[in-house]
Lab assay of single mutants.
Amino acid sequence: QVALSRTQVCGILREELFQGDAFHQSDTHIFIIMGASGDLAKKKIYPTIWWLFRDGLLPENTFIVGYARSRLTVADIRKQSEPFFKATPEEKLKLEDFFARNSYVAGQYDDAASYQRLNSHMNALHLGSQANRLFYLALPPTVYEAVTKNIHESCMSQIGWNRIIVEKPFGRDLQSSDRLSNHISSLFREDQIYRIDHYLGKEMVQNLMVLRFANRIFGPIWNRDNIACVILTFKEPFGTEGRGGYFDEFGIIRDVMQNHLLQMLCLVAMEKPASTNSDDVRDEKVKVLKCISEVQANNVVLGQYVGNPDGEGEATKGYLDDPTVPRGSTTATFAAVVLYVENERWDGVPFILRCGKALNERKAEVRLQFHDVAGDIFHQQCKRNELVIRVQPNEAVYTKMMTKKPGMFFNPEESELDLTYGNRYKNVKLPDAYERLILDVFCGSQMHFVRSDELREAWRIFTPLLHQIELEKPKPIPYIYGSRGPTEADELMKRVGFQYEGTYKWVNPHKL
């Protein structure tokens, strides 16, 4: 086992960053958080920038500027975001240094004079007029057009580079997404736009490419001749908990499936790229999406959770019991969808996408189930092999396979070949997804960000279904809070070829 401390991990990262040409360590950078008073800024962006600063992973002359409508001070920003920093008493001095680099400007999102004030403020910072500028839009999409237009007109660096990070949702359907994309691309070049999907920053999602293309053993079996089906799962054990009003506007397909799960599907299904260059990788992902037809209604199961009468606390409440959810809402909190990649490698292999709230566990994984062994000599005792990439929690890679049961006879039983990170790298604290992705933006690497043509294809696949749901308002199937979801989803999976045995229990190697 390799035991690495946080300091050692960050030392390795620093070495990698400083050796590259793309990370300008000594240049002045300004990180501007648009929507600095909001939840995302408070819980994710400010803490992430602090962790990067604490670990010495930001360029040395980096300033952080918050911008929002609320009249706040840096002290206010500190008060609301610091509880999420997880700072230790030993880091007190470092924390003071961090907040000394912070400033805040209040202004409207659609007022040109406010942006001119913001620009004057940035120019007044040390070497601010020639600094590289990175704008993070932690804002609702309704203000994107006004904000990007004003940034472009008043706040661009004339000497350094300018980059803009856009948070999902990128529209509600193909038409609104196209409108937003066309607007942003009329102001910024594609190499300046970073559409963030934080799932692409997760260690195991990034590991998929290495697993596939750096190991000879997987190449020959990664196709329709050997793989019976692919299941991509995202499960949350909690409901909307008072935030249903926002969720109800989008629903589970827009929230998770059309982005996170579809991105994971691309990494499983794509061909080997010409290189690890950002556009070479994204070219292959677009090719996969172009091979997927629009979702067919007979390959869809929609569910909505109801309270568990035997549960406790939140578990007793259904989705419609959330006071922020519109009365009688038919918005799905669970969806199972089957897609097919219609190309030579994957023809006929079902890709089953499942996601839901208020389920029995927290889990995100990719599961490849292989065909049955031909010419069975073990009297149907063999179960199908599976390769599982567990994204969260407890990152893991393992192969479910058959071995001989101890004893006199040739009785096979299920076991696993474990390729888990935790076994080799004991207690290594890896940077989280937002840390990686923000560092990628500083480096100018777009590999783990969504390109406009990729986004367009993703919406093309799901828009007809979303429009049909909005028009017909089908009643989702009720499922109990804390269950596996509607049984109809299991029946759909069985119908397209997935075999669920229920006889195997994964042993978490992190707890051995």
Rank of each mutant, 00 (worst) to 15 (best):
L437G: 00
D418F: 02
V391Q: 04
G485P: 00
V388S: 06
G502S: 13
G482L: 04
A458S: 10
G444H: 07
V338H: 08
L368K: 04
L430T: 15
K363P: 03
L471M: 12
D280N: 09
V295P: 14
T324H: 07
Q258Y: 03
S275E: 05
L262K: 05
Q392L: 01
Q380V: 07
S452W: 06
F409T: 15
V281E: 04
M264D: 02
S415T: 14
L265H: 01
E488S: 14
C291S: 15
Q381V: 11
N385K: 02
Q304F: 04
L289N: 00
V301Q: 07
K272W: 05
L262C: 08
T403P: 04
K473A: 13
V388A: 09
Y305D: 02
C291R: 13
S483C: 10
V366D: 04
C382T: 14
K426S: 09
C355W: 02
E488Q: 13
Q296W: 10
V507Q: 15
C266R: 00
V388N: 07
D280R: 09
V373D: 08
V366Q: 01
N277W: 10
Y479R: 04
P393Y: 03
T420M: 07
L437A: 01
T487E: 15
A374W: 07
Q304E: 00
S415L: 01
D279V: 11
N385Y: 01
I253K: 00
Q304H: 05
D310V: 13
V288L: 10
H379M: 09
D490R: 06
R484Q: 01
P273Q: 01
Q296K: 15
Q468H: 14
V288D: 04
L289G: 05
D322Y: 04
L430A: 09
F370W: 07
I292L: 11
V450M: 05
V397G: 01
P326R: 06
T463I: 01
E314L: 08
K317F: 12
I253E: 03
H448N: 12
Y500N: 09
G313A: 12
E386V: 03
V337L: 11
R456H: 08
Y398M: 00
R456E: 07
Y481W: 10
F378L: 10
E457N: 13
P474C: 13
R367W: 00
R282C: 01
Q446A: 07
A297Y: 12
G303I: 04
P323S: 12
W459D: 01
V373G: 06
F409A: 15
G313S: 10
K317C: 12
T503L: 14
Q499S: 13
Q499C: 11
V295Y: 10
D490L: 12
D453E: 01
G348A: 05
L339K: 02
Q369V: 08
A358H: 02
F378Q: 05
E284S: 09
W346K: 04
D347C: 08
E365H: 02
Y434N: 05
D279Y: 10
H467T: 13
E294F: 11
V325H: 05
D255F: 03
S483E: 09
P326F: 06
P486S: 00
C266M: 06
K363I: 06
M270N: 02
D440K: 06
P326Y: 06
N411A: 12
E344V: 07
E342P: 13
P474F: 10
G502V: 07
E488M: 12
R384S: 07
D255G: 00
G348M: 04
L302K: 04
E413Q: 13
Q381C: 08
E284Q: 10
A269P: 04
N343W: 00
V301F: 04
S278M: 02
G422I: 13
I480V: 15
D255Y: 03
M402P: 03
R254W: 01
I477N: 12
E294V: 11
R484M: 00
S293A: 12
L320K: 12
L455G: 06
I253D: 05
S415C: 14
V441Q: 00
A374R: 10
P323L: 14
D372M: 05
G313Y: 11
R362D: 00
P323N: 14
K287W: 06
V373F: 05
H448Q: 08
V268D: 01
E491H: 13
E472C: 11
I377L: 14
I377V: 11
P464Q: 09
E271V: 04
Y425C: 07
N427T: 12
E491P: 01
G482Q: 08
E457T: 08
V450I: 06
V325P: 00
L471D: 15
S445A: 14
E435M: 08
P464H: 09
L471F: 10
N299T: 11
P350Y: 00
K363V: 05
E312G: 14
Y504K: 06
S415N: 05
E501G: 13
P393R: 05
K272L: 06
E284N: 08
E395L: 07
K475W: 10
N259R: 02
E472F: 11
K357D: 03
K429H: 12
E454V: 06
P486K: 04
E470F: 08
L492P: 03
G311S: 10
K317H: 12
P309W: 10
K404I: 06
N427I: 07
L267F: 05
V306S: 14
I389W: 01
A358G: 11
N427H: 07
E344C: 08
L492A: 06
G303P: 01
H379S: 15
L430P: 14
K494E: 15
L289W: 00
L262S: 08
T420E: 13
L430S: 11
Q446N: 03
E365T: 08
M493W: 08
A358P: 04
C291E: 12
K426F: 08
E312H: 14
V496F: 11
N308Y: 09
P393S: 09
L320P: 06
D283R: 01
C266V: 07
Y425P: 05
T463E: 07
E271T: 05
A364N: 03
R282Y: 01
F378C: 07
P478H: 11
F498C: 12
D347F: 09
I377R: 07
M401W: 10
D279G: 09
F370Q: 00
T324S: 13
E488G: 09
D440G: 06
P393W: 00
V496T: 12
N394A: 08
I352M: 06
K405R: 12
R345D: 08
T403M: 14
D376V: 05
S483H: 07
R384W: 04
R436F: 03
E284G: 10
Q499M: 14
C266T: 14
N343P: 03
N360M: 01
T399L: 10
N277Q: 13
C355I: 04
E457R: 07
